[in-house]
Design a protein around this nucleic acid. Structure first.
Lengths: 242, 242
DNA sequence: CGCTGTGTTGACAGGTCTCAATATAAGTGG
DNA sequence: CCACTTATATTGAGACCTGTCAACACAGCG
């Protein structure tokens, strides 16, 4: 796979080679971020968005009292830091959870796409909307379900994302997030997170040892999580052909 | 003010008359929704997005067990139902809280904008990103702050939105949402909502009688709510000129 | 005029948080 | 390579916030 062909723009629209290379041309050179380093801190100037090529990255916000909420978990192919475009300084802190690689896309280049490449621009909008649906589902989970259900839906979501990246992997996956991280995703305390994991393990729905997670019964787990399954409208008819 | 000039596309980019009328041309005729009626139910086919011209509309999701989470509160000028574009059926239920008026924009027309009117398309993306920041802040509030703080930040957000629509209004506003609605926004129980309102009133930070809300000290209330204030990047330099 | 939706309050249960302590693993510097 | 520090995981006890169940007042509405 070529370096910069790893993105999710083709998930909704079949882009041709010209369109794809038009996008890849605006991606800067690969940069690396070591584990546990900050790619862009909240409050920083917003000059670029980023295309994640390798590794796990979280997007989080720290409140004045020190509480942290992880808003998004990014995997290779994701665009990072998009929503801060509309702000005078970055809202979210982008942190490399594992050693990561990414390209920067400078904002003038990014917006040139809208002028030069309308179907890629459309794909970008759809990509942002997809991200918004995910954020909405996380909000629903936190607002209206118990911690155990939140954990279930999170693990299902991550597993689904990983399955798209590596379709042949099974029900087990490596989860580089700590229990503190997971708690910050789910809006609970690390201590409580630990107990919720223990409880969910004891039901037999999942295994969780070290950093390896196994979903023993995806159907039952999905049922337990009580969140709607999202059926994405891949390649919808209303997008104008080239 | 002309019927369809009420939208928020100009908040980030100065659009000229041609561009504005290009957008207004794709908006269908005004439709009306009575109070407490559903504009589009979750699970319905996604054929349009909607431009709200008059009234308050909520966007909510109902879970299998009957729990409801209100994900968004829409005021005139908002685009409704955008995120369901990427789904095979609508994720959210759009409900008229007050008598409302709106235009429908059919998806083929909507996406034609990307081909015909790149700067309007850019404005649409920025509009979606702005909405995403708001959703993110709601997520942070629900995940990491107490009920009273959540209520504070919600009231501040609504007051800010209303102030943009009617700059001369003061610190009082009419809130057509019931306590049940507010509870569904904040992820708590209606009974608890009632107590939180009582508590927050007793601090003197707000008044809340009937459907009229008064913010007695916006600065103190903002400080109490503990959520960052978003400074929107109006008319940023990196958007390509026409 | 009864019904339904909304607001309000009390008593109690339960989920989650806080504080505290310990064990283990990971990272760091000598 | 070891000693030390730090991060992470784990468990217990009790407090606190929020939810549940129940009851009642009130308004709007057909």
């Amino acid at each position: 796979m070529q370096p910069n062909t790893l993105h999710r723009l083709g998930e909704f629209i079949d882009l041709d080679e010209d369109e794809l290379s038009g996008f890849e041309n605006i991606c800067g050179a690969r940069a690396r971020a070591k584990r546990h380093t900050i790619i862009r801190a909240q409050g920083a100037d917003v000059e670029s968005v980023y295309l994640l090529a390798e590794g796990w990255v979280t997007s989080s916000v720290v409140l004045p009292d020190g509480e942290r909420q992880i808003v998004n978990i990014h995997l290779p192919g994701d665009l990072l830091g998009m929503s801060s475009i509309v702000l005078s300084s970055a809202a979210e802190t982008l942190t490399a959870v594992t050693a990561s690689e990414f390209s920067s896309i400078r904002l003038p280049d990014f917006f040139a796409i809208f002028r030069d490449n309308p179907r890629v621009a459309t794909a970008l909008l759809l990509s942002v909307l997809q991200d918004r649906v995910t954020l909405m589902d996380r909000l629903i989970a936190i607002g209206r379900t118990s911690s155990a259900r939140r954990l279930s839906s999170l693990l299902l979501h991550i597993h689904g994302r990983l399955s798209r990246l590596r379709p042949n992997d099974g029900a087990s996956f490596h989860l580089p997030l700590t229990q503190v991280d997971l708690a910050d995703v789910l809006g609970i305390t690390p201590i409580h997170m630990n107990r919720v994991i223990k409880d969910l393990k004891s039901t037999g729905l999942i295994d969780f040892s070290g950093n390896t997670v196994t979903l023993n019964d995806v159907v039952k787990l999905r049922d337990f999580s009580a969140l709607p399954v999202r059926d994405w409208a891949r390649h919808p008819s209303w997008v104008s052909a080239r």
